[in-house]
Nucleic acid binder design. Structure first.
Length: 355
DNA sequence: TAAATTTGACCTTT
DNA sequence: AAAGGTCAAATTTA
């Protein structure tokens, strides 16, 4: 409908993002050249973050446009249709099927990013805490998976789905081989504003202060000293984390080389410390798998009957810190890009809201 | 009593 | 047709 205008608009946005990225890079370059002791690592990282976000935004635009044949991500062979599915708002005349199951998925290639992370949870640790990714989820189903040893798969969707139309979902399943590992598959990015959630960083830490015993896969600072500073860091890092995920998703099918261009070396060292998962980031053909294997062998004790309920307990009390971070600023533009794509599902879903 | 989960049926995808 | 994914009534929990 608005193709041409949209194209124009997005092109401008794209140019804007790239220009901004270039400028920021120059600033960063200046930091290096002048190497003034005053140019703190923090400042540099901030620049870096903004640069990355700019790239991310740009890539997002390219991805959406790609469907319309406007631009191509990689020169080489082109993505199969799997990587970035194209924003296919199927508009056959009439209703898309019915209100039954269309709202969120039933179709995983709807332009919804998808990634999986595997979490190893040592016995005796707070499982909910580990699976808590900062969002609140509502369980809507559970399924026995056929040939899985632990044939239970829990299905969750964002609690803000009804109120804000957030389409993010996740599936939690226990690994076949290692019962201590949970595979969490996310679909769709959150478009909600994480409303009304207060995070209590200390409470997310294990009761035994030995935080090394706990594997933290997503954003959870391990130090607790400067909580305030940490909180702020966490926001930025959250964004960065998200960024890497989406980057990987954008890139994955199109070309591994593209990925290489952005690859991990550019991750600030601090991030490596805070987010060990990055050390083991690897990209499989279908999903981005963030694997975390940190050997914690000082665990014994019973597990069988203990751990199974974990799958069901996977829903979590949401926690999120999001107020005024520069990362949030940068992200604003990102949301601007991502939102519209997912928002044509206003059709009521009997699922939740209506009560 | 409202909100969240459980669970078998039903729908979609492969 | 079978397996995966979602719905929604029933049930449980806060």
């Amino acid at each position: 409908m608005v193709e041409d205008n949209m194209g124009e608009l997005e092109r401008n946005s794209l140019v804007h993002e790239l220009t901004q990225g270039r400028d920021l890079t120059r600033q960063l370059q200046a930091h290096f050249h002048h190497a003034s002791p005053s140019s703190s690592h923090e400042a540099q990282e901030r620049l870096l973050l903004r640069i990355l976000l700019s790239y991310n935004s740009a890539l997002s635009m390219l991805s959406w446009n790609d469907a319309s044949g406007l631009l191509r991500l990689s020169p080489g062979k082109n993505p199969t249709s799997r990587d970035f599915p194209e924003p296919d708002y199927k508009e056959h005349g009439g209703t898309d099927i019915d209100n039954n199951s269309i709202g969120d998925s039933g179709n995983n290639r709807k332009g919804m990013p998808r990634w999986t992370k595997r979490v190893r949870i040592p016995h005796g640790t707070a499982i909910e805490g580990q699976l808590d990714d900062g969002h609140s989820w509502r369980k809507y189903g559970q399924k026995d998976i056929l040939r899985a040893k632990h044939p239970r798969s829990g299905y969750y969707r964002c609690t803000n789905r009804g109120s804000q139309g957030c389409l993010a979902t996740k599936q939690v399943q226990r690994s076949d081989e290692d019962p201590a590992i949970f595979e969490i598959t996310y679909r769709g990015r959150h478009t909600c504003s994480h409303a009304s959630i207060s995070i209590d960083p200390s409470s997310s830490l294990p009761e035994n202060e030995n935080s090394n015993d706990v594997l933290i896969v997503e954003a959870q600072p391990q130090q607790q000293q400067h909580q305030q500073a940490n909180l702020e860091q966490r926001k930025d890092h959250d964004e960065l984390l998200d960024f890497y995920k989406s980057l990987a998703i954008i890139t994955e099918g199109s070309s591994k080389n593209t990925l290489a261009a952005f690859s991990l070396p550019s991750i600030p060292s601090e991030l490596h410390q805070l987010y060990p998962p990055f050390d083991a980031f690897n990209f499989s053909e279908d999903v981005t798998t963030c694997e975390l294997f940190r050997e914690n062998q000082n665990f014994h004790s019973q597990e069988d009957s203990k751990l199974d309920p974990a799958v069901f307990a996977a829903s979590s009390v949401a926690t999120s810190s999001r107020t005024n971070s520069r990362a949030a600023d940068a992200r604003g533009s990102l949301d601007y890009i991502l939102d519209p794509a997912e928002f044509n599902t206003s059709s009521g879903n009997a699922g939740i809201s209506s009560k």
